[in-house]
């Protein structure tokens, strides 16, 4: 229930997010997120982060495990992927949203996928 409220609130807050997360993540969204997270010229998360199912993952960033307790707040998770540098100027995490590497919809798909890890 709480997640639904959060999700709906998020959808209202950010018009672009509405399409992606109006309901609980569908298998299609999760699959899309997985593809983004592991495709070199897209999200490419596994170049730096280890997570289950990643092939030849890097270890520059923290391992992504039990992500729901790592970043329980979906909005915060979105902000980390969107522009972590705004929160932590020293980070080397790319600003996937701000620099338009990923669209808001794609970021949400990556989150959907990561919440299964």
């Amino acid at each position: 229930m709480k997640t639904i409220i959060t999700v709906v609130a998020l959808g209202l807050l950010s018009s672009v997010a509405a399409a992606g997360v109006a309901a609980a993540a569908t298998p299609a969204e999760i699959a899309a997120g997985e593809k983004l997270a592991t495709t070199t010229d897209q999200g490419n998360c596994d170049a730096c982060h280890m997570f289950k199912g990643a092939d030849e993952a890097g270890n520059i960033g923290p391992e992504l495990k039990d992500v729901k307790s790592m970043v329980p707040n979906r909005k915060e998770f979105y902000a980390i992927i969107y522009d972590e540098e705004a929160r932590n100027p020293q980070t080397i995490m790319p600003a996937f949203g701000k620099n338009q590497v990923l669209t808001p919809k794609q970021i949400n798909e990556v989150i959907d996928f990561m919440y299964t890890k």
Partner: peptide, 14 residues
């Protein structure tokens, strides 16, 4: 420097 100083010795993919 992001890669060759801050992440020196770590793995970027393989």
């Amino acid at each position: 420097a992001s890669c060759h100083v801050q992440a020196a010795g770590m793995h970027l993919r393989g």
